[in-house]
């Protein structure tokens, strides 16, 4: 019996110590910093974040810039080294571990064009030849040219146009792009 208890106690103790070390301590250290900032998150940004999560962009895009001198993140123009305050305090976190596509920490400043993002999300290969990013057509509606006169269709390159139809972004697409444009390390309050 004593053996049992030594075993059980030991197993739980090593676990508990490391758990405090790697989850509770970081929380105590980092949380106060992150909570001290006012991020001014709009409805669009919060919704866009949720769509980014839903579509699993994180499996191809990281959102953490490594410090200058470690990798070439800075030289690639992906921004300065990320800080804990950079994430608008939105969870789930989007740090990511894969760079099939470029890091997006600073995409709002690198690519500020709404039109470009819309075309790219509808069909990445329309603007980026050979890209392996998936298309997201369900964030768009294809309607007759004459329908919705107050909404303009995307200006797609020739081969992706559908004759007699236009492609208009849904609210979800607008939210997602609003979120992407909010990823901007130059916005005040997000500087380090």
């Amino acid at each position: 019996m004593v053996r049992n208890w030594i075993l059980l106690f030991g197993i739980i103790a090593v676990f508990a110590i490391a758990m405090v070390g790697l989850t509770i301590l970081p929380k105590l250290v980092v949380d106060p910093r992150v909570e001290a900032v006012d991020y001014g998150n709009t409805f669009e940004i919060v919704q866009g974040h949720a769509i980014y999560v839903r579509e699993g962009c994180i499996y191809c895009h990281s959102m953490q810039v490594r410090p200058e001198g470690f990798g070439a993140d800075f030289e690639r123009g992906w921004g300065r080294a990320s800080e804990a305050e950079d994430y608008r305090n939105l969870t789930p976190h989007l740090l990511g571990t894969m760079r099939t596509g470029p890091d997006l920490s600073n995409i709002g400043s690198r690519q500020p064009s709404v039109d470009w993002h819309m075309i790219h999300l509808y069909q990445p290969r329309a603007v980026s030849e050979g890209s392996i990013m998936p298309p997201y057509p369900w964030l768009f509606e294809v309607v007759n040219e004459t329908a919705r006169p107050n909404r303009e269709g995307l200006s797609l390159p020739e081969e992706y146009r559908i004759p007699g139809k236009k492609v208009i972004p849904t609210d979800e697409a607008r939210y997602l792009v609003a979120f992407l444009l909010s990823l901007n390390q130059q916005v005040p309050g997000m500087e380090d």
């Binding site: 690639r76 690198r110 075309i119 603007v127 200006s155 797609l156 390159p157």
Partner: peptide
């Protein structure tokens, strides 16, 4: 390559009717 290529493309040809 970093800034303009996304729209005007690597060969500077742009995309007809768009960029």
């Amino acid at each position: 390559t970093r800034v303009c290529q996304a729209c005007h493309q690597a060969n500077g040809e742009g995309i007809s009717g768009v960029f």
